[in-house]
Design a protein around this nucleic acid. Structure first.
Lengths: 168, 168
DNA sequence: ATGGTATTGAGACTCGTTCTTAAAGGAACC
DNA sequence: GGTTCCTTTAAGAACGAGTCTCAATACCAT
């Protein structure tokens, strides 16, 4: 996996890599699994490439529905999983229940500060935390496959807004 | 919130605090919200107190169903949220979708290594990570309310098991 | 072009969770 | 104790995200 090229923080497109590079990686992965490149998978890849930095599965479904080339819900979910498996996408938490995806090709690993009021997502990078994670896993003989590290709270703008009262 | 008494790692009961202390905290919270202590809420609290360290909402529903004092599903979820709000319970991730709860009264903050094969949960404490989190939030003017830091992977025992092949 | 897979769409289904509604239960006041 | 005014409850319907089923269709190596 190459993750050495870097992207400035704050952009809204997914990656510094070209569509062709990403498509190539996907195609290669499909080949290793004896899976095929189809019209739907290609269309999805394009949609993902043009999606905002952080998007939810339903967004993608909606986007694809609006175009002529319809792709079914099941296929969207199936393909998102494939893209996750081959390291093109990463799935994160948007609040305690919802998920969002983001493209990771050509980007450094990072985690998120999620504002629970306005939904804003701020990325952060902290290699020292990653390193400590590794140490912890070593300590317990645990083989790390994946992790979720999301911080929920209020972004600068939302801290001043009044809080809602409990509704009975 | 007092969280200064400590509990050894590995026990299966939830906390060093007595039931009365926890009940008192809950009652106090209810009072501040003009909510009432009811038979159901009391029964749930007892069930939570006797639940294993990490449990899911459905476990609790099942447990309560087996006793005479039945509590409805909706009430269980409502009460779990209340217990979370008042700092008695914490909700964490058990795999990318499922949730589990654990009691936090009288316990140090910790996070989890979750084995995705056998489901074993290993707790870990790393104050330096927490501290860095704080720093990051300060850097972005973010007010942290909550965080999720779960590491998924294979525990020592499960690392040797063969992996399953893709099913088409 | 053929054949053997892989893939797809549509909708049924699951699962965890929340909502709705009428009925029952507290609490405060008389 | 009775009245009044909430709050709470149970049961099941509803919800939303995601998965499964399966017959029809698309790939692609030959």
């Amino acid at each position: 996996m190459k993750t050495d090229s870097v992207v400035g923080s704050g952009g809204s497109q997914i990656s510094a890599n070209t569509y062709e590079e990403v498509a190539e990686r996907f195609r290669a992965y499909l080949a290793t699994q004896s899976l095929r490149m189809t019209r739907q998978r290609e269309e999805l890849l394009t949609a993902v490439f043009h999606a905002p930095r952080h998007f939810e599965a339903e967004d993608l479904i909606k986007t694809l529905r609006e175009r002529q080339g319809h792709v079914s819900r099941a296929t969207v979910y199936r393909t998102l999983s494939l893209l996750e498996e081959c390291g093109v996408l990463r799935k994160s938490l948007f609040g305690h229940n919802r998920h969002f995806y983001e493209s990771v090709v050509g980007r450094h690993h990072h985690d998120h500060l999620v504002c629970i009021r306005c939904g804003k997502i701020q990325e952060f990078e902290e290699p020292r935390i990653e390193e400590m994670q590794e140490q912890i896993c070593t300590r317990y003989g645990f083989k790390i496959l994946d992790h979720v590290h999301e911080i929920f709270g209020a972004c600068e703008n939302c801290q001043n807004e009044p809080t809602e009262a409990r509704k009975h």
